[in-house]
Design a protein around this nucleic acid. Sequence first.
DNA 1: CGCCGAGTTGAACTGAATCAAGAAACGTGG
DNA 2: CCACGTTTCTTGATTCAGTTCAACTCGGCG
Lengths: 192, 192
Amino acid sequence: MFDLLYNKISSLTPVTDEEFETIKTFFMPKKLRKRQFLVQAEEECKYLAFVEKGILRSYTIDARGNEHVVQFAFEGWWISDLFGFFTGEPATFSIDVIENTEALILTHANLEKMFVAVPKLERFFRILIQNSYVALQRRMVGTLTLCAEERYMRLLSHSPDIATRIPQHMVASYLGVTPETLSRIRKHVLVK
Amino acid sequence: MFDLLYNKISSLTPVTDEEFETIKTFFMPKKLRKRQFLVQAEEECKYLAFVEKGILRSYTIDARGNEHVVQFAFEGWWISDLFGFFTGEPATFSIDVIENTEALILTHANLEKMFVAVPKLERFFRILIQNSYVALQRRMVGTLTLCAEERYMRLLSHSPDIATRIPQHMVASYLGVTPETLSRIRKHVLVK
DNA sequence: CGCCGAGTTGAACTGAATCAAGAAACGTGG
DNA sequence: CCACGTTTCTTGATTCAGTTCAACTCGGCG
């Protein structure tokens, strides 16, 4: 059950078996069903989640009531409202379940205890966030430099998971276009 | 000369005087004049820079030849092409000088040596990147949810430095609009 | 003094949003 | 396992925020 977590951690920062035994004790397994919430915007974000199976997504709702997907988390990915998680302030995003999910959950207190128990995990999380930061910069630059169709084509090639496993209207939201526009783009791409 | 660096580090992770003496040895002071490059896109990104004085900016050029500002770095901020810096791959962004700058420079080798010499700095950089990540998420969500004028108003209140110290056409680029549009927005805001 | 880059203004254009209506797919309960 | 209601997706017509192109002004610097 902790295999995927072990692989992900040791691929960035090798850990001994004892260390990993210690690490395991800080995680709490949690099953979540489709549409359930892990975090609600405006409330406390208690959890940092590692997805073992299933899909989670974080999103925000704008002034006009439209949803905007911030992140999808597939198997092997981490998700949280990092701002809320680390500051204790109310979460800015909601996190809910797209496919029934089995996750391993860290509370903030447990994360800090874990850093004390296994200090090299500071390095692991540093690199993890660093990679996320680079990926987010890419997405940001993409929205500044590419038109909707180009962004969709890039999504198809770089993140085929998103294109295939996620409902189309959420893909649209992630790309920053309306569902209607994505529908037209797909039609147009097919014709070519 | 290292005062600002000391303050920034110790505000997140207290360090002893000896530790800071060690830390200092890994940094190389560097003066840069307006329009000079610290990093060129497509070339190796050798440096992670801490800005003591002046302003740097990272940007990319799209297929149509337009510049898009990725980040501004004022006094007390860090800047690099993180992807290139950590992977050794060619940089995706260029970094150049907006106001004559005095920076403290880390090479990748020195950063890793510094992590070995003062392991608690892993934690410092983890938190630093974490904060940058949250800020970037905010910017991303802003571009998904707000219109150009709203983004400008938010910039005025949240990042007055950018609005006042940066040439207008670069502010436009950072906001993701053309210089003409920003000019019109400012006119419109004045009237109100 | 003259030039050049930065900023402004106007007019025409366009990519994507919005509004509206229908078709398809989905899942829930009988 | 089918029927019904609810989402999701598609398609069309219209609108609009922001771009593009072009001309002009201003301020600074060589």
